[in-house]
Simulated scan of single mutants.
Amino acid sequence: MSAYADQRVLVVGGTSGVGLAAAHEFAAQGAATVIASRSPERLQTALTRLSGLPGPVTAQNLDMRSDEEVEKFAASAPEFDHVVVTAGETPLGRVDTLPLADAYTAMDSKFWGAYRIARSVPVRSSGSLTLVAGYLSQRPGRASALQSAINAALEALVRGLALEYAPLRVNAVSPGLLRTPLWDGLDATARENMYEAAVQRLPVGRVGEAADIAQAVLFLTSNAYTTGTTLYVDGGGMIA
């Protein structure tokens, strides 16, 4: 029997990309998995894609940018064994050109959203909380100062929470470039050129997939001796 067969897991942002891949892995191993998103349409699409797995999957409409919604959900939710936060929108753009309103929204979405979940949602002390940040925290680009700052803040939050919430284990996964729907808004040619440049640069010789990060998430949720850690899954991007 899988270690997750009798466990409850919440994946915030579980409708696409890393979140969907993580939800699939948990449900495939028998966990009762709840996927949360602010988009009812995406929730229904994700439920269809996750149907037929050993573990039951249910959906929760939740906007983690809202104090009221998160607190209302937390007040009625049962304790989870594991909570994973993958959601958050962080637009690219130079500090001097990115509108301040967009910068505030990004911080509210990815950092404060994770903070709200960590603050309110009940998790068993024997379980885990895992946040998804990004390797830009350590390897900033020319138009990603905001993303770098938000991801670094998430990683610092993890270290603090690991002490405050002990023995609950709190960790982060920081991915490198991934082939996910995050880039669907980019021109197809520009997107493929970006991927090809990464293939040439990265020691692993390929672009990451959402499944690569899902595997890292499940390592952190299952390893009882890991807390306060940021696991970089970037294909060698930090050293390339």
Rank of each mutant, 00 (worst) to 15 (best):
V34H: 13
Q44A: 11
G30C: 04
A36T: 05
A31G: 13
G14Q: 01
A27E: 06
T33H: 05
Q29A: 12
E25M: 14
E25I: 11
R38E: 06
V9L: 07
A23C: 04
T33L: 04
V18W: 03
G17N: 08
V34F: 13
A36F: 05
T15F: 00
Q44N: 09
L10V: 09
V18Y: 02
V18I: 14
R38Q: 13
A32N: 12
A23R: 04
A32H: 15
G17I: 08
V34A: 13
T15M: 03
A31Q: 14
A28D: 11
E41N: 13
S16Q: 05
A22S: 14
A31D: 11
L43T: 02
R8Y: 01
G13V: 01
H24V: 10
A21S: 04
L10S: 12
Q44E: 15
A31S: 10
V12I: 14
L10W: 11
T33I: 07
G19A: 07
G13L: 06
V9E: 06
S37D: 07
F26G: 07
A22M: 15
R42L: 06
G19F: 07
A23N: 04
T15A: 01
G30F: 03
S39E: 15
L10N: 09
A23E: 02
V11C: 00
R38D: 14
L20M: 08
R38V: 09
G13D: 04
A27H: 09
G13I: 00
G19T: 02
E25C: 08
A31W: 05
R8T: 14
L10D: 13
A36D: 07
S37I: 03
L10F: 10
T15N: 00
H24R: 13
V11A: 00
G19P: 10
V9Y: 03
Q44T: 09
F26H: 01
R42T: 03
V34Q: 15
G13W: 03
V12P: 11
A31I: 13
H24K: 11
S16D: 06
V11E: 02
S16C: 00
A21T: 01
Q44P: 11
Q29V: 07
V11M: 00
